[in-house]
Amino acid sequence: MEKAKVYFTDMRVHPGTNLPEKLKKLIKRAGIGEIDFEKKMTAIKIHFGEPGNLSFLRPNYAKAVADVVKEFGGRPFLTDCNTLYVGRRKDALEHLSAAYENGFNILSTGCHIIIGDGLKGTDDVSVPVKGGTLVKEAKIGRAVMDADVFISLSHFKGHEMAGFGGCFKNIGMGCGSRAGKMEQHNSGKPSVDPDLCVGCRICAKNCAHGAISFTEKKAVIDHSKCVGCGRCLGACNQDAVYNENSSAVQELNIKMAEYTKAVLDGRPSFHINLVIDVSPYCDCHAENDVPIIPDVGMFASFDPVALDQACVDACNAQQPLKGSMLDDNMHAEGFCDHHDHFVNTTPESEWETCLSHAVELGLGTREYELIEVK
């Protein structure tokens, strides 16, 4: 396979221009205009940020991408799917409130916001994964799959399990419904916390497999009958249904790659990573630590594998920022150098498996040509 083209621009601007305009120039140079956007509904997948976290991408960047899509005749909307964990984005009402609180709305971005998996995270579709080893059918938010064109706009930063959160994390995990996220994080079999369960029986009403019974007015899930559809998780208003076991990091990475395959297959797609405010943890945290490295720039490509590889390479070429978590770890007694900034930040994390498996799935190549846009 020949090298993929990855386009890059730094964060320097001069009087008379600005960063949103520079982002527009980058994605046009990278060939986004080759996509037929005319009257096409275009999903722009972005993370709206957990309230309290201030390292998420500003709405201005989303508007720049939406403006370009509209310039080419497309009908863009911003989207993300509800979270599995209990936070401010676990259902569409709270998710939209969080997005508004963080500055995302039709005035600031020039397009609507649609939560991809619906009100309670149960509005999904089963999408076959061609070549999938751990996932045969991915549970993807319906609005994501209904779009004619798909664009990922990702904040490239650290992640406590996947090493870094970039294109694949944004797409694979981000586009999974709550049940899809559960499948990626574990075996797909939820359990019930009896201390939170109030015995309302709404979970049982939503279970099509008779897997839920009640003991002393508390729900109990029979894993031999449960198929992991996640309907009970979405139905519970008490957050009593939860994931019992977490998958190994390598298994999580494989599943993320396979979910990304499900999202991208069969339609035009384009991918953008902004390597700025590179926090050690995901934007799902309700806080953000200081960046581990300086801002690098903006990257764009049709190839999601090459894009993430180029970004991680660029990050590893940077000097750690003094006083960051990475710097602290590197000066700690007994430090073991993994020669990778993200693994040195969170030694239990791992990211190689995701990109390697993505290549096996035919999603792209790790070999790239970096083209700088001034």
Results as ranks from 00 to 15, higher is better:
A98N: 02
A99H: 06
Y100M: 12
Y100L: 15
Y100S: 14
Y100N: 13
Y100V: 15
E101I: 14
N102Y: 12
N102C: 14
N102G: 11
G103W: 05
G103S: 08
G103P: 06
F104S: 07
F104A: 06
L107M: 13
L107N: 12
L107W: 12
S108Q: 14
S108L: 11
S108P: 12
T109V: 15
C111A: 08
C111G: 07
H112G: 01
I113K: 01
I115M: 05
I115Y: 01
G116H: 00
D117R: 09
D117V: 12
D117A: 13
D117C: 09
G118S: 11
L119Y: 14
K120D: 06
G121A: 08
D123V: 07
D123M: 09
D123Y: 10
D123I: 03
V125D: 06
V125H: 06
V125T: 08
V125F: 07
S126G: 12
V127T: 13
P128C: 13
P128Q: 13
P128R: 14
P128G: 15
K130V: 12
G131L: 09
G132L: 10
L134E: 12
L134V: 05
L134D: 04
L134S: 05
V135R: 01
K136M: 14
K136L: 15
E137P: 02
E137R: 14
I140A: 03
I140L: 06
G141L: 11
G141E: 07
G141M: 11
G141R: 03
R142A: 15
V144I: 15
V144Q: 00
M145Q: 06
D146V: 00
D146P: 00
A147E: 01
D148Y: 06
D148F: 05
D148S: 14
V149W: 01
V149K: 00
V149A: 00
F150L: 12
F150H: 03
S152R: 02
S152Y: 05
S152L: 08
L153Y: 02
L153I: 03
S154W: 01
S154V: 04
H155C: 09
K157T: 10
G158N: 01
G158C: 02
G158Q: 01
G158A: 03
G158P: 02
H159A: 06
E160A: 07
E160Q: 13
M161R: 07
G163P: 02
F164E: 01
F168R: 00
F168H: 05
N170M: 04
I171G: 00
M173D: 02
G174L: 05
G174A: 02
G174I: 04
G176S: 12
S177R: 04
R178M: 08
R178Q: 09
A179P: 04
G180I: 10
G180S: 13
K181C: 08
K181V: 10
M182Y: 06
E183T: 04
E183V: 00
E183I: 02
H185M: 12
H185A: 11
N186T: 14
N186F: 14
G188T: 07
G188E: 05
S191H: 03
S191M: 08
S191F: 05
S191Y: 06
V192P: 01
D193N: 15
D195M: 11
D195N: 13
D195H: 10
L196M: 11
L196I: 09
C197L: 11
V198M: 13
V198F: 10
V198A: 08
G199T: 04
G199S: 11
C200I: 07
R201Q: 15
I202V: 15
I202W: 03
C203H: 06
C203Y: 04
